[in-house]
């Protein structure tokens, strides 16, 4: 077993424990308990931070897409979302097309 395999196995175990602890804890509380509302707010905020970072300051391969192209992708997606009255799939296709077009049209 290599280090990568061991790391994968332990990460899987840790993820299952986190999920199980959450389900047990959340199931034991009243649905209107403040801890449930807090956990929900933290989850939504994490997702929101992820989106902002992925668009404005991504790490890894996504960073190779220039910022104007990423912004064009978001703008095209939002425009598609409005024009197509909230239909997600076509709005996403608009966004991805916007990103690719802007990237292709950029000099250099």
């Amino acid at each position: 077993m290599t280090g990568a395999d061991l790391a994968l196995g332990l990460t899987i175990l840790a993820g299952l424990l986190l999920r199980a602890a959450g389900l047990l804890l959340g199931g034991a509380l009243r649905p209107d308990h403040p801890a449930i509302a807090w956990a929900s707010a933290v989850s939504v905020a994490t997702l929101s931070a992820f989106v902002v970072l992925a668009i404005l300051a991504p790490a890894g391969l996504l960073a190779s897409v220039p910022l104007p192209a990423r912004l064009a992708g978001v703008a095209a997606g939002a425009l598609g979302w409005r024009l197509l009255r909230g239909r997600l799939l076509p709005a996403m296709l608009c966004g991805l097309a916007g990103l690719l077009l802007a990237w292709w049209a950029m000099p250099g």
């Binding site: 790391a7 332990l10 990460t11 840790a14 993820g15 986190l18 999920r19 199980a20 602890a21 959450g22 389900l23 047990l24 804890l25 959340g26 199931g27 509380l29 009243r30 649905p31 801890a35 449930i36 807090w38 956990a39 929900s40 933290v42 989850s43 994490t46 997702l47």
Partner: peptide, 20 residues
């Protein structure tokens, strides 16, 4: 493992929120 679990720590509040 610690870094990957921290990056996925949202599983805990997500599970708490969805359980009810």
């Amino acid at each position: 493992v610690v870094a990957a679990t921290a990056a996925n720590a949202r599983f805990l509040p997500m599970s708490v929120a969805i359980a009810p």
